[in-house]
Design a protein around this nucleic acid. Sequence first.
DNA 1: TGTTAGCACTCACTCGACTCGAGTGCTAAC
DNA 2: GTTAGCACTCGAGTCGAGTGAGTGCTAACA
Lengths: 351, 351
Amino acid sequence: MNMDERKLRILQAIIDDYILTGVPVGSRTISRKYDMGLSSATIRNEMSDLEELGYLDQPHVSAGRIPSTKAYRLYVDSLMHTGRIPDDSEGSIREHFSGRISQMEEVIDRAAQIISSLTRYTSVVLSPKGAQPRLQTVQLVPVSTGMALAVIVTDSGIIRDNVIRVGGDMDDDTLYNISRALTEELRGKTLEEVCAAMPRLIERMRGSDEVLQGLYGYLASDRNCPGRTHMAVGGTSNMLAYPEYSDVDKARNFLSLLETRDKLADIIRGSGEMAFTVRIGPETGVPEMADCSIVTATYSTKGGQQGTIGVIGPTRMRYSRVLSILNGMGRELTELFSGDTDKESEDKRKR
Amino acid sequence: MNMDERKLRILQAIIDDYILTGVPVGSRTISRKYDMGLSSATIRNEMSDLEELGYLDQPHVSAGRIPSTKAYRLYVDSLMHTGRIPDDSEGSIREHFSGRISQMEEVIDRAAQIISSLTRYTSVVLSPKGAQPRLQTVQLVPVSTGMALAVIVTDSGIIRDNVIRVGGDMDDDTLYNISRALTEELRGKTLEEVCAAMPRLIERMRGSDEVLQGLYGYLASDRNCPGRTHMAVGGTSNMLAYPEYSDVDKARNFLSLLETRDKLADIIRGSGEMAFTVRIGPETGVPEMADCSIVTATYSTKGGQQGTIGVIGPTRMRYSRVLSILNGMGRELTELFSGDTDKESEDKRKR
DNA sequence: TGTTAGCACTCACTCGACTCGAGTGCTAAC
DNA sequence: GTTAGCACTCGAGTCGAGTGAGTGCTAACA
């Protein structure tokens, strides 16, 4: 037995209906609501075939049928009429971002909010990471005696800073001179390379070695520390609106998964650096998400770093809508992070 | 009819039991589990009196009784045996913080996690704000042509930074000289005063006026912008563990309240700057929280700024435990934020 | 050979009747 | 003032019949 055109059409109707209603769909529903020109009995036969082929499941004998993971897979890969971005959304994204946008964290947070409000699912946005950014400027700003703020500007426009110990009483000018020397020496290197170069520098620049030690310690710990990648989660409560989560225990499990941020980041990033991925149910590899799907997309920054945006929803997700919203948001973020910073300030200034 | 010693003891037993179990408590339970030396019938009479006095409610005739808001109020104000901090917690707080702590945001996030894991309720931590911090250093770090990062260090040790437009092509040295001049001029002023002084400065320091304009714009918007206060929420899923929230709709309302961060911050901060506040049920003033209680405490920074930590739980909250945990955390945060930063780096270095 | 009408069958779900038991209020005795 | 006893209330749980959506199968039809 093989799939034919008609089976595909019926399967599509079933998936569409189930995504819409969340209720197992029966043969009669299909023959009436969708204009197939076939009686329910025929549909029934076809559905029986589709079940045998592994595309449909039956919760119990006297209920309708629901799409299997395999069906969703097929749907996403080829059946889905990949809609363009919903009319309202494109404008919506723009509009939401049009206000004041300064810090990267704020953009990330806002993006998560927008995605979840547009999709009505749970959204996750991860800050850019990946390709090593290259150092552009180092500058040390005195904070208190013996301490300074090390500001590191990279070519991706992302700034990291941290308070480090510089020892003794360095006056502003001394720190500034050290900063200049460091910048000259290190500009254009990746953070990896900077770390590698540090021991040699410490050797050479006697007299300011405590400063360099401090900086080195910070860089070394920061480089390996994924904690600095910012993550925003939006619409956690949205999931509770779906009957799939009317069971409180299930909901709690899901929510506490969202709370373990490291794990969540791994899951979202699990898709690698593909432009788009859709993982359905078991494909997520997370037992707690056996009946969730995860859709992710990437965006990139000027420096070539990649960030991830994702949506988590029930397997009966409105995939096409979600994909186009993520697409729109990805484009918007890419633009925001790689367009020159002038535009941001422009917006800001206008207020 | 008046409250006497015995009524108080009985009321306390009822509250204790209800907080523990969440089930309406009957007269027999009290007479057996709590060593009153009274029969259930007597207790029954007393309970009847307590109900008349407004301290107890009866969900329905044949159920036990539950404490009213008034009862909790009395309990918190005078009945509660204000336990010292639970044995495990004091150490726990220390231990959790002993790892790497650098950015304020991280401390805040971590604090929320710790509080919620210790209390098993939902926790909220707000970054310090209030008393105007005084400027200590301004420094401009070049980021790209025409743009610079303005780093502002205040005496509270809290650092703000933002990318501003500086116009033209300022080289490092020029920016540095401007920074020095600005620092000299503005050190010791509150941010309010800095803003007030800016127009005059812009007048005087012709030639670098575009830089100053940019800085002014940032300061002016930042000063009035409460968005910069960081807020962390922990243990959102904890609430679902309590039978009070076995109703999914209720849970969803609660969760979406947690998501509207501005509103939540207002609610938490609603208590003003009291060292401790306990708001019970309707006292919260938030309809969605009619059967929640909010306990808050404050901590302070070197610069005299105040931050807020809070716990949101069901009205039958383990008040004494929560209060002592918040007390411990408040002390720890105050120490962290007002002790000199040396200690932090020390910890960091040890790793 | 594919399609359809008809029919028996399944099974979750609903709803009312019933039981059970925790808890109360009241009364009378101590 | 305290307590034992008892009738009463009412939510929660159980049981069973009824309902209806949906299926699979068979036989008739185009």
